[in-house]
Design a protein around this nucleic acid. Structure first.
Length: 427
DNA sequence: TCTGGGGTCCTAGGACCC
DNA sequence: TCTGGGGTCCTAGGACCC
């Protein structure tokens, strides 16, 4: 019989912020940006949740619902650091660990009874170890499948432990709202309501063949999940170490929509650099480059191009994504722009002699740049075109520094004013 | 409500090949 | 003439997760 734990940190981002600023404790706290900014709530403290604030809610809405809330900018490096501390505790508990996101993990404790005792005792021991190591609370669900363990950890919140006895899975799930099943979001919930299904028990009562006819693969997975099985999609496979990423992307939403080509292309350069850097970090090469555009009315478009070889080079990514941009952009004001790469291969494949040499030179230059950024910070160096350095302030959205005239793209690429060069290499 | 950023997986249509 | 069938790759979009 399998034994799976799902461990989920309680209000993770908020709790980490409280470690750095204990005066936040017990107060309504919203992490993700400042009140009134463009953006959404990343995490809300339990005190803020009592006002109806929840993650993914627009910051403006949160500000209206809870005027006394304290708004805090997120600190991703802090969360990564604490996530790593959690991981180390888990690793010392069992080698079969898989981080499912920055604040949750699955553990396979099948057959670990001799080492850790019965499931509830093991769960409490793990809970204590996490708290001792991090000063953070978590909740743990234990069950025979990932799915039930995950739902159980959610029901155990906050700061609790819940074990679902083998054989009791369907009984545990039956009274819960359909939305509690991972993979059932707003749309699927609505579609299920439309056929009279509101609780997991209703779903379990339906024929598998009916659900498959009606909802395809999703229906088949739902039929399994309603019975507590790890059916399809996210839940298949053994618990083990994370695999290589399947895609890498960076995107940016402007604080104000812009229709200026120079600003948009400078942002593409910055995003391409960030993507290229991550590719080299993972020692990956991408064959498909994708542009993402979102206009003021929130309409969103993607345009992709697949290369005949795989690349890890900023300038090559930029070259293709900029081509896509020039073809696709209507000229209307843009809210968001993004760069995405996928179809990874281990190496670039066979290049012509000339391309191979060029490639090698760029690779060397970019790894050198990566090392400089490791030591001196992200903004210390840039190779993706003078564009970016010249208009750094505009890319960083400081309207006060706009030059009176808008230079044409390309014209000033090579001419980076010395003043800005020293500014951009500072720190 | 006025909607981030980083991901995964699924669907569907068209091109192309045999 | 007016029409096959399967497989793979590519592109675009969408649901969902944290």
């Amino acid at each position: 019989m399998k034994l799976i734990f799902h461990l989920d940190m309680d209000a993770f981002f908020v709790s980490v912020e409280e470690l750095f600023n204990p005066s936040l404790k017990g107060k309504p706290v919203v992490v993700g940006g400042q009140r009134g900014q463009r953006g959404v709530v990343s995490a809300a403290s339990y005190a803020a949740r009592r006002f109806g604030v929840h993650s993914a809610m627009p910051l403006r809405t949160a500000g209206r619902l809870c005027p006394q809330a304290i708004f805090v900018d997120g600190h991703p490096h802090r969360y990564r650091e604490y996530s790593h501390k959690v991981y180390e505790v888990l690793q010392s508990f069992t080698p079969l660990v898989e981080m499912a996101s920055i604040d949750e993990a699955y553990l396979d404790l099948t057959g670990a009874g001799r080492l850790h005792g019965p499931p509830l005792r093991a769960a409490h021991e793990l809970h204590n170890r996490i708290h001792r190591a991090t000063n953070l609370n978590c909740s743990i669900g234990a069950a025979t499948s990932r799915l039930v363990a995950k739902v159980a950890s959610d029901q155990a919140k906050p700061n609790g432990v819940l074990w679902i006895l083998p054989g009791q899975e369907a009984k545990f799930l039956a009274p819960l709202e359909i939305r509690k099943i991972p993979g059932v979001g707003k749309v699927t919930e609505k579609n299920l309501h439309a056929i009279g299904v509101t609780r997991v028990g209703d779903l379990a009562g339906l024929e598998e063949t009916f659900l498959e006819r009606r909802f395809g693969k999703l229906g088949l997975a739902l039929a399994g999940k309603a019975r507590g099985l790890d059916a399809g999609g996210w839940f298949d496979g053994e618990i083990g170490d994370a695999s290589d990423p399947k895609s890498i992307s960076h995107e940016h939403t402007f604080s104000e929509d812009t229709a200026e080509a120079i600003v948009l292309e400078a942002m593409l350069a910055r995003l391409s650099e960030m993507v290229g850097r991550r590719l080299r970090e993972h020692a990956l090469h991408a064959r498909t480059v994708q542009l993402k555009l979102r206009y003021s009315d929130f309409s969103t478009f993607t345009r992709a191009h697949t290369l005949d070889h795989a690349t890890k080079l900023d300038n090559e990514i930029l070259d293709h994504v900029r081509r896509l941009f020039r073809k696709a952009w209507t000229g209307a004001a843009v809210r968001l722009i993004g760069v995405h790469v996928s179809s990874f291969e281990d190496s670039e494949g066979q290049l012509s002699l000339l391309d191979g040499e060029k490639n090698a030179r760029w690779s060397k230059a970019l790894s050198a740049a990566d090392r400089i950024r490791d030591r001196f910070g992200e903004s210390s160096i840039s190779l993706a075109g003078g564009l970016k350095s010249t208009f750094r302030e505009r890319v960083h959205e400081n309207p006060a520094s706009l030059p009176g005239k808008t230079p044409r793209p390309g014209k000033n690429d090579a001419a980076v004013p010395p003043a800005e060069r020293s500014e951009s290499s500072g720190k």
